[in-house]
């Protein structure tokens, strides 16, 4: 995670008159698997889905949150003394416990300011469009040379529709290549205006079966598939992305149906199979949430290759890893 120093220290911003402000959790520069070329990803916080395998669980809730990384904690005790609400208590020789119910985020953040070890961090900053794009512009030379640009991700970027619209519009005005990475779970009315300012849409299709989709993500997939057809009708290049989760959505039937659906569309550049990984698991713990997929092992490379081979007859190009 690559938040620059000046964004690391939590400083809640007063809402600015008339200027759209969004909740951003992070930037990731030199992203090369989320759209063409070298890109910067802007992670927008807040998501209506609750996918069991979510690798960015810190981006689910639409408000700033405390993350506690026990491994970083050196047990200095500074946060205990600093917290005005006294909601932090010692927990073992090298750790603390945080009563999140009593915590005064987003107004406070005092504990994080004294946590030099970055054991307590606050995820989520209110940033203006210009602040976001200033960060994005830093790698302009890399985008220009590689055909890259900015990708808005999250969380669900369309969950902050006004801010996303302002961001995408301003990015295009600056001549940046723009992409969005979405679950597709949003009102088409708020999605449509943004589309005019996008060059590529990375669109997740997590399961074709409505019940299974609801079970795995908490929401139905009808709206998602409808919106995907609508995006396609606009003629925007689409990459359909399937997070390939062992035992949950990696059955041959689901993959074939996904490929068949993609094949019906006119502007699908590729269907990307994104192999499950566990790199997001520690963050569930940092948020004091239980990881639903604890103990699930990623596919072996050969298994992924075999699953991709199932789709060989599809007219849509299938990639592993995007």
């Amino acid at each position: 995670m690559t938040l620059r120093k000046r964004f690391q220290l939590y400083a809640p911003k007063a809402a600015q008159a008339g200027e759209p402000v969004g909740l951003v959790s992070d930037f990731q520069r030199f992203s090369i698997h989320d759209g063409p070329g070298i890109r910067t990803i802007v992670f927008l916080k807040g998501c209506p889905l609750r996918c069991q395998w979510c690798q960015n669980p810190e981006d689910m809730l639409p408000r700033p949150e405390l993350l506690y990384i026990r491994n970083n904690c050196i047990g200095c005790g500074k946060c205990l003394e600093t917290c005005p609400a006294r909601c932090i208590t010692a927990d073992g020789p090298h750790g603390v416990a945080i009563d999140k119910a009593a915590c005064r985020l987003p107004e406070c953040g005092a504990c994080q300011a004294v946590c030099y070890a970055n054991a307590i961090t606050i995820c989520g900053r209110h940033l203006t469009v210009d602040e976001v794009l200033e960060e994005v512009e830093l790698d302009r030379e890399f985008y220009d040379r590689s055909g890259g640009g900015v990708t808005f991700s999250g969380g669900e970027p369309f969950a902050q529709p006004r801010f996303l619209l302002a961001l995408a519009r301003a990015a295009k005005a600056r001549g940046l290549d723009t992409a969005v990475e979405t679950s597709g779970y949003a009102d088409w009315e708020v999605m449509l205006p943004v589309m005019a300012h996008l060059d590529t849409v990375l669109y997740d299709v997590k399961h074709m079966d409505p019940q299974a989709h609801r079970r795995l993500t908490g929401v139905d997939n009808a709206r998602i598939l409808d919106n995907l057809r609508r995006v396609d009708a606009l003629g925007l290049p689409i990459r359909v992305r399937v997070p390939l989760v062992p035992g949950l959505n990696d059955g041959p039937e689901n993959l074939r149906r996904t490929a068949a659906f993609a094949a019906e569309l006119s502007h699908v550049a590729a269907l990307d199979l994104l192999p499950y990984h566990r790199m997001g698991e520690p963050k569930w713990g940092q948020l004091e949430k239980d990881y639903p997929l604890r103990g699930v092992s990623p596919h072996a490379r050969e298994e992924v290759v075999a699953l991709a081979a199932l789709l060989e007859g599809s007219p849509v190009r299938v990639t592993i890893g995007g």
Binding site: I32, P36, G37, I38, E141, F142, R145, S146, G147, G148, G321
Partner: peptide
């Protein structure tokens, strides 16, 4: 993985050139 395809090669050249 970062260099697995022609886009990866292009990215490497973009880094070098910058």
């Amino acid at each position: 993985n970062a260099l697995k395809d022609s886009q990866g090669i292009s990215n490497l050249i973009a880094v070098t050139e910058t």
